[in-house]
């Protein structure tokens, strides 16, 4: 061995040790925890302006311009944030009657919403009325259990989308409520409603196994729970009947949960179910922390709600 080679080898080895040391730090010592923040709304129902001080029920609450600053503050703190809506964006104030949802979609685009699912009221101007407003939405509409193939919305709605934030893959899929009896057939036309439980089982399998997602989120407009019809499909029942879903973000029943519900799935694992009432009065915030530290991971996932 020539002396020069020896030196080269030695320095390379030294470099490797240093690299190895760095590697240990960055991958196993837990110095790097990745935080994913999920923000969500539901049933905003065209409530663009805040309720006035004289409002009998929700004085001085809500308002898109305030929600915008709240979201921006959270995003400044953690850029790895997704912003989602669980449907019923439309209907509730004259803004919808005058503009048909244009302003709602434009504002959600300015707030940088990532995805939304479709609520029953989003059909209030028919499938064509929704389609007409889609150019104003710079975010995706996700619905896995509405089959739009025989309607004008064919090709405009995806079943799911995978987002990547700081190396973490987040799969989001959408579920809608049964339209028959709730929405005029002239409005939803040939939209087919598919069993949400079976759809959710398929979606969670695809997102976990095929897409290798680290997080699976269901955006649901099924409703939180129907105490007079406990068998009716709802978010709590969906949680019980499925697996591989980490978070169900709900809507439809305008349920003001004081905090997210921790439910058990079909294999006894925890699922978070959340819903933030309606009219943009509350914003849901769920933080998921990922770490490579085996010691930390071995302790399982702690949930603070």
């Amino acid at each position: 061995m020539k002396r020069r080679d020896f030196i080269q080898q030695t320095s390379a080895t030294a470099a490797l040790i240093t690299l190895g040391g760095l590697g240990l730090q960055s991958f196993t010592s837990g110095s790097k925890t990745t935080k994913i923040t999920i923000l969500h709304t539901n049933d905003v129902h065209s409530h663009i302006d805040a309720f006035g001080p004289e409002d009998g029920r929700n004085p001085n609450q809500g308002g898109v311009a305030r929600r915008a600053s709240l979201i921006q503050n959270i995003k400044n703190e953690n850029p790895n944030t997704l912003l989602l809506d669980a449907g019923d964006i439309f209907q509730g104030t004259p803004y919808f009657n005058y503009y048909g949802g244009e302003l709602e979609f434009k504002l959600m685009s300015m707030l940088k919403y990532d995805a939304a699912t479709i609520g029953n009221h989003d059909f209030d101007n028919g499938v064509d009325g929704l389609l007409a407003q889609l150019p104003h939405a710079k975010f995706d509409f996700l619905s896995a259990n509405y089959d739009f193939s025989n309607t004008s919305l064919d090709g405009f709605v995806k079943p799911y989308k995978v987002f990547k934030k700081d190396g973490i893959k987040i799969g989001v899929f959408g579920l809608g409520v049964k339209l028959d009896g709730l929405v005029d057939k002239n409005m939803y036309k040939e939209t087919k409603y598919i069993n949400p439980v079976e759809t959710a089982q398929d979606m969670s399998r695809i997102l976990k196994e095929k897409e290798k997602c680290d997080l699976v989120i269901c955006l649901s407009h099924l409703g939180y729970f129907y105490k007079n019809f406990p068998e009716k499909i709802s978010d709590l029942n969906l949680a019980k009947a499925t697996k591989n879903i980490d978070l169900i973000i709900g809507g439809h029943t305008h349920t003001f949960l004081p905090k997210p519900t921790v439910a058990k799935n079909s294999i006894g694992e925890n699922v978070l179910v959340n819903q933030v009432g309606c009219y943009g009065i509350n914003l849901g915030k769920i933080d998921f922390y990922f770490d490579a530290d085996k010691n930390k991971a071995a302790k399982g996932t702690s949930i603070l709600v």
Binding site: T33, P260, N274, V276, N282, K285, D287, T301, I303
Partner: peptide
């Protein structure tokens, strides 16, 4: 990476 912690809350606007 393993999911080690979840924190959730609802914030009033």
């Amino acid at each position: 990476l393993q999911l080690i912690k979840i924190e959730g809350k609802n914030i009033n606007v």
